[in-house]
């Protein structure tokens, strides 16, 4: 099976509320695709639609070219983790995986393999009700991996994990993508996807705002801005503004300059004998890039609503 997820023109409304408004994107193999947006943007609904759990008014979602509901052994093609807390508390972690394995015609041996892979061997025979959130997330990942699927759909898998768990999850997701799987990971915090996602699908209000590679996104968000560290903020601002730059104060001794190249900034400061300690090309964080994008989207919506 081709390891892809194709989401095309999903529309869904709950009464007057529009949950999905033409959601369209594609997830390709060998990459971690981040699925980012504020809470209520339609991420979880889209994931449930992909997994055949929710119906849509329009559009379709295909996994490897087929609708999820037509799959005979779906867990062998798509592994998913929607809610790590969805466990029968009195059932042991191992028995939870065991019934899932039986439903797909998988042997009990497979359960032990995935448990070992997520590092839950010591706790697996305990009741799931006593698991910490991090252990539940690991159990959920184990369940998703049970059928060795080429496609993974994970809803907020690091939510509630401790820093060590988050670090483990990042590396784990990267290794899954490196095995050639298509990995779709949602988060409402862009920072969680830093150093994890190769590609991000940014959504708001039920549709895609940006569908872009992480490298390109940071590139464009950084623009041709220059970070300047100087002891004389006032003179530096005057000189650079005079030369036609836009200057923003970003710290007690730092300015962000746009409209001039780094070389030109150094030359101008030297000509006017303004002291400075550092001039560097500005590199935006993923979070900043995200904020920039969504700010536009939010303003757009605010303007729209103001016009009503």
């Amino acid at each position: 099976m081709e390891a892809t997820i194709e989401v095309t023109g999903l529309r869904k409304r709950y009464g007057p509320t529009v949950a999905l408004d033409g959601m369209t994107f594609t997830v390709t193999p060998g990459k971690v695709t981040g699925f980012v947006g504020p809470n209520g943007a339609g991420k979880s609904t889209t994931m449930r639609v992909i997994l055949g759990l929710d119906s849509v008014d329009e559009g379709r979602a295909l996994v490897g070219g087929r609708s999820y509901r037509s799959l005979r052994h779906p867990l062998r093609q798509v592994g998913s983790l929607l809610d790590a807390g969805a466990l029968q508390p009195s059932r042991t972690g191992r028995n939870h995986l065991l019934w899932l394995a039986h439903s797909q015609g998988l042997a009990a041996r497979r359960v032990d393999e995935v448990v070992e892979r997520v590092g839950l061997t010591s706790a697996i025979r305990r009741k799931a009700g006593g698991y910490s959130l991090g252990m539940r997330q690991r159990l959920g990942i184990a369940a998703a991996l049970l059928g060795d699927p080429p496609v993974l759909v994970l809803d907020e898998p690091v939510n509630g994990m401790d820093p060590e768990g988050i670090r483990w999850m990042r590396g784990f997701l990267r290794s899954l993508a490196a095995e050639g799987r298509a990995v779709l990971v949602s988060s409402h915090l862009m920072s969680e996807l830093q150093d994890t996602a190769d590609h991000v699908v940014i959504v708001g209000r039920g549709k895609v705002i940006a569908d872009v590679g992480v490298a390109d996104l940071i590139e464009s968000a950084s623009g041709d801005r220059v970070t300047l560290r100087t002891g004389d903020r006032a003179r530096a601002t005057t000189v650079l503004a005079h030369a036609g730059a836009t200057v923003a104060v970003t710290g007690s001794d730092t300015l962000t300059v746009s409209g001039l190249s780094g070389e030109r900034v150094v030359a101008l400061l030297g000509e006017n004998a303004v002291p400075f300690s550092e001039v560097s090309a500005h590199r935006a964080s993923l979070e900043e890039a995200y904020m920039e994008l969504t700010r536009d989207a939010v303003e757009f919506h605010a303007a729209q609503e103001g016009a009503r």
Binding site: G52, R69, L87, P89, L100
Partner: peptide, 18 residues
């Protein structure tokens, strides 16, 4: 009903969509 209470019904139905 325990499947609904825990949200386990989603796991069950994604394992067996029919």
């Amino acid at each position: 009903t325990s499947e609904y209470r825990r949200g386990l019904i989603r796991t069950s139905l994604s394992a067996s969509p029919r």
